[in-house]
């Protein structure tokens, strides 16, 4: 399996960070980088990462099964993650999540028909000081209100 030049460059750089024969440690970041390009972890992708890191495909699949950030089905171009853990919950995170469900017509770990936006109710994203917080792909949004969420979703749709 081949990736784009930029991803291949990232993977090459990544491999430099590990001592020879210890590429097992690179499995998670490699999966993340590849997922950024492919969108989700396909069986071929898992196999490719396994080969590149010198581990069994099963070991890669174990990792993919364990981490929710690694996804086995195709998600939206933008993955909207709304935290409903304690700090966000107290400041309206759950209302944000329910609003997003209604507005997008999808639920947890689902994707809109046009594969533009997918939704996930996530555990703590470490932004408690700025709760309620949400994440769109790798971008954080702090002190989110219903209106702000509407704006974010609308801007994603027009993108």
């Amino acid at each position: 399996m081949k990736f784009s030049l930029s991803t291949e460059a990232r993977l090459a750089q990544l491999a430099q960070n590990y001592p020879p024969g210890r590429l097992k440690g690179a499995v998670i970041p490699m999966l993340m980088y590849c997922q950024d390009e492919v969108g989700y972890i396909t069986p071929e992708l898992a196999q490719e990462v396994a080969t590149r890191c010198g581990v069994s495909t099963l070991e890669v699949e174990e990792v993919v099964g364990f981490y929710t950030m690694l996804r086995k089905q195709r998600m939206g171009k933008t993955h909207l993650q709304i935290c409903t853990n304690i700090s966000c919950l107290l400041t309206g995170g759950e209302e944000l999540y329910e609003h997003a469900c209604k507005k997008l017509g999808i639920g947890h770990n689902q994707v809109t028909e046009d594969y533009q936006i997918s939704l996930e109710e996530v555990e703590c994203i470490g932004a408690c000081s700025w709760a309620p917080a949400i994440q769109t792909n790798y971008d954080f949004h702090h002190h989110v209100t219903i209106e702000k969420l509407d704006q974010i979703i609308d801007s994603l749709r027009t993108k």
């Binding site: 069994s56 099963l58 070991e59 699949e61 174990e62 993919v64 099964g65 364990f66």
Partner: peptide
Amino acid sequence: GALGVTNR
């Protein structure tokens, strides 16, 4: 090594 664990 034919067995593994998935999910958590």
